[in-house]
Simulated scan of single mutants.
Amino acid sequence: MQQDLLISRLRDGNEQAFERIYELYSRSLYGIIYSIIRDEAVSEEILQDVFLKIWHEAPSYDPEKGRFFTWILNIARNASIDRLRSKEYKNSQRNVHEEYFSDIMESGNQTSGKIDAIGLQKYIDILGPMCKKLIDLLFFKGFTQKESAQKLQIPLGTVKTRNRMCINKLRANVIR
């Protein structure tokens, strides 16, 4: 089924279209969620919440405003960051130390394979170490620019400039 037709049917409330959307995108969305949350059970729970939101919000999707994958990716990313920032999640993670985590873009563990499910790894590998770290903090771990500046011990203005440079470099590599 053509993707535009599939999305149109989803927007109209077609359950078969929703099932097909789930088949097509669940693995990629899980990879993004897991890269932020780093807990399989919680990631699976968030994935289900994300697909419920996709189902309920599908009529509001506007193809004129952006690609469907970008729309659902933002839903998944925002849901993951919301969970990270929730009091309940923070309390459940009290005994987990920062050293336990390795950077998602540098590691060779199962997370890298899940991130690469959407084909990001080849573009991320091109970036320098500072860009990798900054994108990891801002987009995968949900840090604010101010929190990233504190974490990296660099001025906020530098974070903003490097973020813009890194995103432009990533964009240039993806569009090629």
Rank of each mutant, 00 (worst) to 15 (best):
E99M: 07
Y100C: 09
Y100D: 07
Y100V: 12
F101I: 05
S102F: 14
S102D: 14
S102E: 15
S102A: 13
S102C: 13
S102M: 12
D103F: 07
D103N: 11
D103E: 11
I104G: 12
I104W: 00
M105A: 08
M105T: 02
M105I: 04
M105P: 01
M105E: 13
E106A: 08
E106M: 13
E106W: 12
E106C: 09
E106N: 08
S107H: 07
G108E: 14
G108S: 13
N109P: 00
N109R: 00
Q110G: 06
Q110I: 12
T111Q: 10
S112G: 06
G113S: 09
K114F: 08
I115L: 11
I115N: 01
I115V: 15
D116A: 02
D116Y: 07
A117H: 02
A117N: 07
I118H: 08
I118C: 10
G119T: 08
G119M: 11
L120S: 02
L120Y: 10
L120P: 00
Q121T: 12
K122C: 06
Y123E: 11
I124P: 12
I124E: 10
I124K: 00
D125E: 15
D125P: 00
L127C: 01
L127N: 03
G128R: 15
G128K: 14
G128Q: 11
G128V: 14
M130E: 15
M130Q: 10
M130D: 13
C131W: 08
K132L: 04
K132H: 03
K132I: 06
K132S: 04
K132W: 05
K133R: 15
K133I: 04
L134K: 01
L134P: 02
L134D: 07
I135P: 07
I135H: 03
I135G: 05
I135L: 15
I135C: 05
I135Y: 03
D136C: 09
L137D: 02
L137T: 07
L138R: 03
L138I: 15
F139H: 12
F140Q: 03
F140H: 06
F140L: 12
F140N: 09
G142A: 07
G142Q: 05
G142W: 05
G142N: 04
G142K: 06
G142R: 03
F143S: 06
F143Q: 06
F143T: 04
T144C: 11
T144L: 03
Q145H: 13
Q145L: 12
E147D: 14
E147G: 06
E147W: 09
E147Q: 15
E147S: 09
S148R: 03
A149H: 05
A149R: 05
K151V: 02
K151H: 04
L152S: 05
L152M: 15
Q153I: 04
I154R: 00
